[in-house]
């Protein structure tokens, strides 16, 4: 038991580092796409250290202090429920029976904590960002949950491990190919989860000054920063396990998560931004429709 906790902790540290590195790589790729040099890929580590060692002198109340911890715990908790390598004694984290449903609750935790804390900060831009974030969450959760339900019904299991085992035996057994519509719905909702560009109105640095975290500084921001990166890695791992057949060793996990990481990145760099009602309407029409199509297909095939 203690060994398992130790391994999970080490995996978590690795996950945070990997998330920060991915952030640096995304900044580099964005810079190269805009025909400039860009920072080094290690830039996010430097930023994190600098933020961590800055002074904090703001007092806004208890919830304000707790929100970054919520964010970090939400991200880390999600990460710890997703197995990196299924079946490995070291890298499967705490995935247990029925964990998909727990997981979907956990993914919301960070956002809710953030909402409470941002509301406490008293800055007028923060509630605007929170409203937008929660509305957008209501948008992308629907197609994502639909596609997860499709997989759960098809494989007759609610654990990630079972879903991964159902995809073994060649590339064509991946859910990406066996359930293409559900996969499409989930990958579109991934764009909303990552607040990548067509659905980026939540943060909107130009108009509402990065929205919810407006008032957060220094150490708080560093917690949120690491929480955000580990949450991103958790989402990539989750998608890898759901649709790309999991990973049999650490190298495959890196390759597959990197492939998933490239998808919102390239969309981000070439698209303009949608307004809130447009993005929510989009999530509730096309991806939801695709998810329903696959659900119907499974029902009829059975």
């Amino acid at each position: 038991m203690w060994a398992k906790i130790l391994y999970a902790f080490l995996t978590l540290i690795g996950g945070i580092a990997y998330g920060l590195l991915l952030g640096g790589i995304s900044r580099k790729i964005t810079a190269r796409m805009q025909n400039r040099r860009g920072p080094t890929v290690w830039q996010n580590f430097i930023d994190l250290w600098k933020l961590f060692r800055k002074k904090t002198a703001i007092s806004h109340g208890v919830m304000f202090y707790l929100a970054p911890m919520f964010r970090l715990v939400g991200g880390a908790g999600t990460f710890l429920l997703v197995p990196v390598v299924v079946g490995s004694p070291y890298l499967s984290n705490f995935s247990f029976g029925g964990d998909l449903i727990v997981l979907m609750y956990f993914m919301v935790l960070g956002c809710l904590g953030m909402a409470l804390g941002a509301a406490e900060s008293g800055h007028p831009h923060a509630p605007i960002g929170v409203t937008r974030g929660l509305s957008q969450m209501a948008g992308y959760e629907l197609p994502f949950i639909l596609s997860v339900i499709v997989l759960m019904v098809a494989d007759k299991t609610a654990t990630l491990e079972g879903i991964v085992r159902a995809q073994q035996g060649g590339i064509l057994h991946w859910h990406l190919f066996t359930h293409p519509f559900a996969a499409a719905a989930a990958f579109i909702s991934l764009l909303g989860m990552m607040t990548s560009y067509p659905f980026q109105v939540v943060l909107a640095p130009q108009e509402i000054a990065v929205g919810p975290p407006t008032e957060y500084s220094s150490t708080f921001l560093s917690y949120m920063f690491s929480g955000r990166s580990v949450f991103a890695v958790a989402k990539y791992l989750l998608f890898m396990n759901l649709f790309l057949g999991g990973a049999s060793n650490l190298l495959w996990a890196f390759v597959k998560t990197f492939a998933i990481f490239l998808w919102p990145l390239f969309i981000t760099n070439v698209f303009p931004r949608l307004r809130l009602e447009q993005s929510v309407l989009f999530f509730w029409t096309w991806p939801t429709f695709l998810g329903l199509v696959d659900l119907l297909r499974i029902y009829l095939v059975r």
Partner: peptide, 22 residues
Amino acid sequence: FTSRFDAERLGMRMVATPRQAD
């Protein structure tokens, strides 16, 4: 700060709020 001179390669960034700025 944009493509022509690209101050981001020195690790600099524009942030929108004074709370997070150096």
